[in-house]
Simulated scan of single mutants.
Amino acid sequence: MRRFGRTLVAAALAVTVGAGTAGWAAGDSRQEVTGPPPGTAAWRADTSGPALPDPAGASPHEVARFFAGLDGARQRDLLRRHPLVVGHLDGAPVALRYEANRQAILATGEARYASLASPGRQILAFDPRGRGQVAEVFGDLERAAHVSVIVPGTDSDATGHDASRTAHTGPAGMARSLRAAAGADTAVVAWTGYTTPVGVGLDAAGGRLAQAGAVRLARFTEGLDAVGAPDPVLFCHSYGSVVCGLAARHTDATDLVVLGSPGMRADSAAALHTRARVWAARGPSDWIADVPNVEFAGIGHGTDPASPAFGARRVPAADVRGHTGYFAPGTQSLAAFTALAKGEVR
């Protein structure tokens, strides 16, 4: 991760002095996964009942109304026929999506995803394309009084979702830590629903992947609203904060919390044009502080959200270690995050 920070510095400086970047882009570029899920063609061609909502065009609220008009047998029939589509449809019933994604994961036959189908896992979204995307729920999303969403950064994907990590890091580890601290009335979603940058290079320094991710994040939060979930708190780590910055005006989040952020592609909190309260945390040993807060020719992510000039509310983080320690038990940051997740901060 320190190499990532140094490379962002180098990339920003290289562009500033006019150095070429073609070699970096060729070595680092990832193709973002966009559009409806695999199986959409068969879904669209299905004439076994009333017309099905188009995964690419129907809003999550339209999807919710469609499923509300079906009996249980018809819902299960669609699950059986089209598990990848049903599991991916924002606005579809939560429990139905869990079961659809379990079946879709098993159907891949891939060992790298097998643990995601284990009993008790609550996989709200799964897409096997590319490095894979996944959203996992911790807690009871259908009955929760409060909902939070973890939006991770670089090197996050479905393939590594269950990889061994230092405790309380990675999207699932962060979500588990916050859920444990917040208690039973709070559900937390580890949302790796976009193609993240890999390692170092221009993908991490640029906004292309974040722009695609912002569209998906906005639709995901609309899907939460469509099934009656409370307006969420978004916790956006590292490159995930770039995604949240671009999605901010299109979500109904109550609070938008960035941690270890390289920037949000905005000059100020007001420039995000969001009704959410904007918060920022930066630990004293987080290497992200060494990243130049510039934006030039598409490189860099702009003003430091943790700086007074940005205008975000500050989250105490004096005892956070490194770039990934914000959810460690006992830290000031986790205590503050917990209060925000439970709606206790006015």
Rank of each mutant, 00 (worst) to 15 (best):
P93W: 01
E142M: 00
P55I: 05
A135N: 06
A95G: 11
H168Q: 07
M264R: 09
V9L: 08
I299N: 01
R129V: 09
T16K: 01
A135T: 14
P83V: 07
V227I: 15
V149K: 02
A204P: 12
A19E: 14
A56I: 08
S59A: 14
I150V: 15
G132N: 08
E110H: 02
F138S: 06
E222K: 09
E142S: 14
R2T: 00
C236I: 04
S29R: 15
Q31T: 15
A306I: 02
H61Q: 15
A14S: 14
G120P: 12
F220T: 07
P55H: 09
D155V: 02
A247P: 12
M264I: 10
S118C: 07
D185T: 11
G240F: 11
N293G: 07
V345T: 13
G343M: 09
P60F: 09
Q211V: 10
V134H: 05
A212Q: 11
A212Y: 00
M174E: 12
V189M: 10
Q211M: 13
R97W: 11
R219V: 11
G298F: 07
R44D: 06
R97G: 08
V189Q: 10
L340M: 13
G325W: 07
A317V: 07
P232D: 13
G39T: 08
A341C: 12
L334D: 02
A318V: 03
P262V: 12
L84M: 15
A100W: 05
A289W: 07
G132Q: 10
L89A: 10
A12T: 13
A111W: 03
A289L: 00
T154H: 09
Y326K: 03
H146S: 10
G23H: 09
L234N: 09
A297M: 08
